[in-house]
Design a protein around this nucleic acid. Structure first.
Length: 594
RNA sequence: GGCGGGAUAGCUCAGACGGUAGAGCAAGCGGCUCAUAAUCGCUGUGUCACGGGUUCAAGUCCCGUUCCCGCUACCA
């Protein structure tokens, strides 16, 4: 039995549908990784959910004329369905508005408070006079006191680049409704990061294997840590679990503090849902368990500093010492896997400028595996990467459909026509062994790359097997071997075995297609399991949808699976439909190119 | 402004530890016809952003410059 692997996937924010840049950062990489880990025998727990608190949710809710909860429900539904469609194999994809999550956040808050890592402090802050809500700096604009630019933001002037304090803006106004913000002194709780910096530094020093940019960025953050406010004047969020605070309608724990705790609360919820309430501990308390966290680069600070800081505080392991909290001594992240950004025409996806490709639209027109393939082979793994429709069409048609899809098609189709079943291999020669050796050797090679989250290179190596198989068929010319049926059958058998091996290698990337190939080879049952949407209930709370799946029952293993001679074969249908090449020039109707 | 990342063939990108630049696509030529007009073989191409430095040797290390991208912690 393999070790326990926790796959913690960044929580998509539920203020709107997610675009393909989002899922290229956290979604596809984490799923490829988890599927590979399961196939190679590890006990994987993959958790996430929608992140549903915070000012932007409230603002968007007002814009759409509904309550924050209604808005969260709406986009939780959209996002859950998108991720299900993409085939992301979460053991639990839940949300931050559950009773369970509130309880875990409050328990963690209390533990940190008791250990002295969460402290009350008075601070000046902007609030909206009409609603009484905290007005984040980014929602304030006004005239820059330094250069006189009229549309300076509360935290920074886009014109002169200086960092600003909203108090200093001339004629400050709310971007939400235009009113002038009120600056008041309010009491809030702060996470005392400086008292955790020493322990964080010690922990980080052991992480020499991380990607250098994540390490450098994190070390820099540690050099200048300040206490950070974790509550706000808001009516939307987890209540502060202390007497005198609990019932205040306008004091809430703020979203970034509660969202990262979701990794823990979702693990606990998962254990309850499978009827084994202590099961989460195998991933969180066993020191041998590994925790991999997947996110876009904008999220590094929360995962390399703040979340580990919260965990250290709960464990009583900062400068103030303290007791181990109610959850036991929790594991810190083993690995932070951060992606760069998928860009469009060289800049960030932007909802406001309409420069955006939503996951739902994409899946409806092109299906999950084409997107998964593109992100895996051309995604923003090491640097920002531009998405273009022409590149997408080229990758899909020439690589996915022509090389891989057509290999499956030609091999199965020939065996079907000549034999009607998986043929016997009674005349094996060196060329056959050579090809089989290549595909078997690839498991080790591709596996090592996947373990290190080198997805692009892993995919290239897997596709190398596909190319070799195409070359083998062309060289052996089985269609010319009508008078040597035994040799012909052996060639076809070898080709089908390598199709099977390549399919296994590609399963983490292309699980939907992998299931089809599995069946095309005359097998049955579930090869690669898919997540399903289930409606679950909670005591004292409303029902909600989650993603879960029966992944332990899938057949896929990270090894060569022998094909069974005699298994009947059907005439295959193309694995991947080809895209109209004009799509590359124009884009789809819903995202026309200029 | 501060911090980080990037700049390599027409295009998209690889290039731990420094040792005379790689892959795929596109282009040209040839083969094959089993297959989704699919596939297989052969053939080119680069002042590795710019300027200095260290070194026997630098795309790779150091300094400076330019351009692009991101973050800058009250966006999440």
């Amino acid at each position: 039995m393999g070790s326990h692997v926790l796959t913690s996937v960044a929580w998509p924010y539920a203020n709107g549908p997610r675009h393909i840049g989002h899922v290229s950062g956290f979604g596809v990489p984490s799923d490829v990784f988890s599927r590979y880990m399961r196939m190679s025998g590890h006990q994987v727990l993959m958790v996430s959910g929608t992140d549903e608190h915070g000012t932007p949710i409230s603002v968007q809710a007002e814009a759409e004329g509904m309550t924050a909860r209604e808005l969260a429900d709406k986009y939780n539904g959209v996002i859950t369905s998108d991720l299900q469609g993409l085939g992301l194999s979460y053991d639990l994809f839940t949300r931050t508005t559950t009773r369970n999550h509130y309880r875990v956040v409050q328990d963690l808050f209390t533990a940190l408070f008791k250990n002295g890592y969460v402290v009350p402090k008075k601070a000046m802050g902007a609030v909206s006079p009409s609603t009484g809500r905290t007005l984040p700096d980014r929602y304030i604009e006004g005239t820059c006191p330094i250069c006189g630019y009229d549309n300076a933001r509360g935290d920074q002037c886009d014109n002169c680049g200086n960092q600003l304090d909203p108090v200093d803006l001339i004629n400050p106004r709310s971007k939400i409704n235009g009113e002038a913000p009120k600056f008041v002194e309010t009491e809030h709780f702060f996470l005392d990061l400086p008292s955790l910096a020493g322990s964080l530094e010690k922990w980080l020093a052991t992480k020499t294997e991380w990607r250098p940019n994540v390490l450098r960025f994190s070390h820099n953050l540690l050099a200048d840590l300040k206490p950070r406010a974790i509550t706000r004047d808001l009516d939307w969020g987890v209540p502060v679990p202390l007497d005198g605070w609990r019932d205040q309608p306008m004091k809430r724990i703020y979203v970034w503090f509660d969202a990262v705790i979701g990794y823990l609360s979702a693990s606990i919820e998962w254990a309850q849902r499978i009827g084994d309430p202590d099961a989460w501990k195998r991933w969180w308390l066993d020191p041998d368990a590994q925790g991999y966290y997947f996110m876009g680069k904008d999220n590094i600070v929360f995962h390399s500093v703040i979340w580990p800081g919260i965990l250290l505080g709960q464990n009583g392991e900062g400068d103030h010492g303290g007791e181990v909290g109610p959850f036991g001594k929790l594991n810190l992240p083993s690995e932070i896997v951060s992606s760069e950004f998928l860009t469009m025409s060289g800049s960030k996806f932007s909802t406001s400028r309409g420069q955006v490709i939503y996951v739902g639209d994409f899946l409806r027109d092109f299906g999950p595996d084409a997107l998964r393939y593109f992100i895996s082979v051309a995604g923003p793994e090491n640097q920002d990467t531009d998405f273009t429709w022409s590149e997408f069409v080229r990758r899909t048609n020439f690589e996915l459909a022509n090389e891989w899809g057509n290999l499956v098609n030609r091999a199965v189709s020939m065996a079907h026509k000549q034999v009607g079943a998986v043929p016997e291999a009674n005349d094996q020669r060196d060329v056959d062994h050579e090809l089989l050796g290549l595909s078997r050797g690839a498991f080790d090679e591709v596996g090592k790359l996947l373990q290190r989250s080198r997805f692009k290179q892993a995919m290239s190596e897997a596709m190398r097997v596909v190319s070799a198989a195409n070359a083998y068929i062309s060289n052996q010319e089985p269609w010319k071997l009508k008078d040597q049926p035994e040799r012909r059958d052996t060639v076809l058998n070898t080709a089908l075995q390598v199709v099977s091996d390549a399919n296994t290698l590609l399963t983490p990337f292309l699980p939907h297609a992998a299931q089809k190939v599995h069946e095309a080879l005359g097998r049955d049952g579930v090869w690669a399991a898919q997540p399903e949407i289930r409606t679950v209930s909670e005591a004292d709370g409303p029902d909600y949808p989650v993603l879960m799946g029966e992944y332990a029952a899938e057949q896929a293993r990270w090894q060569s699976t022998p094909i069974r001679p005699g298994a009947p074969l059907q005439k295959p249908t193309p694995l991947f439909p080809k895209l109209d090449e004009s799509l590359g020039e124009t884009g789809p109707d819903w995202a026309k190119l200029d």
